[in-house]
Simulated scan of single mutants.
Amino acid sequence: MTISIPDLVSVRARHPEAIAEAAHRRARRPLIGDSGRLMIVAADHPARGALGVGDQRLAMANRADLLERLCTALSRPGVDGVLATADILEDLLLLGVLEHKVVMGSMNRGGLAGASFEMDDRFTGHRAEDIERLRFDAGKLLLRIDYEDRGSLDTLQSAARAIDAMAARKLPLFVEPFLSRRVDGAVRNDLSADGVTRSIAIASGLAGTSAYTWLKLPVTEDPDDMAEVLETSTLPTVLLGGEVGRDQDGAYERWRKALRLPTVQGLVVGRSLLYPAEGTVEAAVDTAVGLL
């Protein structure tokens, strides 16, 4: 699909109500389809100021290019839906590519990459009422916990209330937890078995109910640890892709192994599919779908 930015701008400037109208008309589907698995493409990075992919510092800053890549990914067989912030999801609504797709709204993007307040990850994106009003299908929140940064406590509290608000509407919420720490001023996530295990335990116990909570988890540093790590919770889980660098084959093999585990229901992958180190978006997406 060729993206016309002037056309999108024209609709937004002259007919902003078209977004709500498109959301109201959109044909929906169950969260889990006939395959019994879930394949979601993620594109909520820009709103946190995280625009880089590999050595391209501003790769995700070109909106027309990003939208074209998303449209390509969403057109591939086996892709169930997309995770993004309001601006991107509304562009996709106007482009008409979200029919019969799972649409996930990204809720907290306030912990800007590299900011002094990064661990105080405020809910600056979708609220539960927005996801309900727009007839979207689920939400996602990022939960990074630094034991030495008080901002993490505010994030924990607001995350718990977001889970409550989504559950009250019977809407699934995908929680992406990490134990994190600052190294030379930069936030680093702990992907050790111990770190991921503790993050699962903390995230699973948030809020007044976990009935609608899913986990969105990384594969541990040693993929052989995943089976034991996932014994920490009975919550359904999807694997997050993250940025895999140039070792795409190695990443695919780690995902393939983890996808065999009983709580893992699918994949949520972003930059490594939309901006693959080698090959095309189509090839990267088809390979990931094949893992399911």
Score class of each variant (00 low, 15 high):
Ser199Arg: 05
Ala138Thr: 06
Val285Met: 02
Ala113Asp: 13
Leu95Pro: 07
Val238Leu: 04
Asp190Lys: 00
Tyr252Lys: 11
Pro276Ala: 11
Leu142Pro: 04
His100Cys: 12
Arg48Ala: 14
Arg260Lys: 14
Ser106Glu: 01
Asp91Phe: 00
Ala186Cys: 11
Glu228Gln: 13
Lys140Met: 14
Arg25Asp: 15
Leu230Trp: 05
Pro276Met: 05
Ser199Tyr: 01
Ser152Pro: 06
Leu74Arg: 06
Glu118Cys: 05
Ile5Trp: 01
Ser116Ile: 13
Leu217Asp: 04
Glu129Cys: 13
Ser116Gln: 14
Arg181Asp: 10
Leu240Glu: 07
Ser158Asp: 14
Ala258Trp: 05
Ala165Met: 07
Pro46Ile: 03
Ala59Trp: 00
Asp80Gln: 04
Val82Asp: 12
His100Phe: 14
Glu243Val: 04
Val103Ser: 10
Arg57Val: 13
Gly96Trp: 01
Thr155Lys: 02
Glu231Leu: 10
Arg260Ile: 07
Gly114Ala: 06
Gly81His: 03
Glu176Leu: 01
Ser272Met: 03
Pro177Glu: 04
Lys216Val: 12
Val219Gly: 07
Tyr252Phe: 12
Ala227Leu: 08
Ala59Ser: 08
Asp249Ile: 11
Ala162Tyr: 09
Leu51Lys: 02
Gly105Thr: 00
Thr263Phe: 09
Ala203Met: 07
Ala18Asn: 01
Asp190Ala: 04
Gly78Gln: 04
Ala201Cys: 09
Ala20Cys: 14
Asp120Tyr: 07
